[in-house]
């Protein structure tokens, strides 16, 4: 239960907000919003970037700098969470305790299911990342799938080691390669994240210039970050 009894000031505020939202939404006609930038991008995106997925081309070509900023925010959040939780593992003298979880492994079904699912989750994550410019998907979604793939074995066998050093290296290299691709575009074509390598023909796997490379970088970075977050939160019970 949220509270044992209703909070009348909060309910009054909600009522007022509902009235305000109703008044605002009445004038916003569904289905023909007056937005023209999106329509303009829809017309030229395939020709300019070579990606069949217009959302991916907006995300990585037209608004690629925003995506870099978004990755920075995610990095800051993951670093903050690791900082806050990492201290919990140190005792009073400041030396790190053993991070290995001493809980017993999970039941038979979860262990075998985790073993069975791990390669398929890897393949699905790689597929979603690498086809991000052709089909729905991309670095963020595929990165989440990869993080799940690396976390499920941890859930099945809490004592199995997760190499956080490797995860940090993957994360750092992926983030750096995103910036390097952007700088290469700056050097080659004159602006940050300019498409490299030619657009190719729309609809083929090797097309859309540097967008698949950027998707791969984002996928690895997001995947290692989210996996690190889940590992950090997957600690012993605080009693």
């Amino acid at each position: 239960m949220l509270t044992s009894r209703p909070r009348w000031p909060a309910l009054l505020f909600i009522l007022g907000l509902a009235l305000l939202l109703t008044a605002l939404l009445r004038d916003l006609h569904f289905g023909n919003a007056p937005m023209q930038v999106g329509q303009a991008i829809n017309g030229v995106a395939a020709h300019e970037t070579g990606a069949a997925n217009v959302v991916a081309s907006v995300l990585l070509a037209y608004r690629g700098l925003d995506t870099l900023g978004e990755l920075a925010i995610l990095f800051a959040a993951a670093t903050g969470a690791g900082l806050v939780l990492g201290i919990a593992f140190r005792n009073g003298n400041g030396e790190a305790q053993a991070k290995t979880n001493t809980e017993p492994p999970a039941g038979f079904i979860l262990r075998k299911g985790a073993d069975l699912m791990f390669p398929f989750l890897l393949i699905l994550g790689a597929y979603v990342i690498l086809h991000g410019h052709l089909t729905p998907g991309g670095g963020f979604q595929g990165g989440a799938i990869l993080a799940a793939a690396f976390f499920v074995p941890q859930l099945a066998r809490p004592s199995s080691p997760f190499n956080e050093r490797t995860a940090h290296w993957v994360e750092a290299l992926a983030g750096a390669s995103f910036v390097l691709i952007g700088i290469a575009g700056l050097a080659g074509a004159g602006w940050f994240l300019a498409p490299l390598l030619g657009t190719g023909s729309v609809g083929e796997l090797l097309s859309a210039g540097s967008i698949p490379l950027l998707q791969l970088a984002i996928g690895l970075k997001v995947g290692s970050e989210l996996a690190g977050l889940m590992i950090a939160l997957h600690g012993p019970k605080e009693t």
């Binding site: 919003a33 937005m35 930038v37 999106g38 329509q39 991008i41 829809n42 995106a45 217009v54 959302v55 907006v58 995300l59 608004r63 925003d66 995506t67 978004e70 991309g138 963020f140």
Partner: peptide
């Protein structure tokens, strides 16, 4: 449909 809100929400 408009791709800009979709890219915004994705992030």
């Amino acid at each position: 449909v408009d791709p800009l809100p979709q890219a915004l929400i994705l992030t």
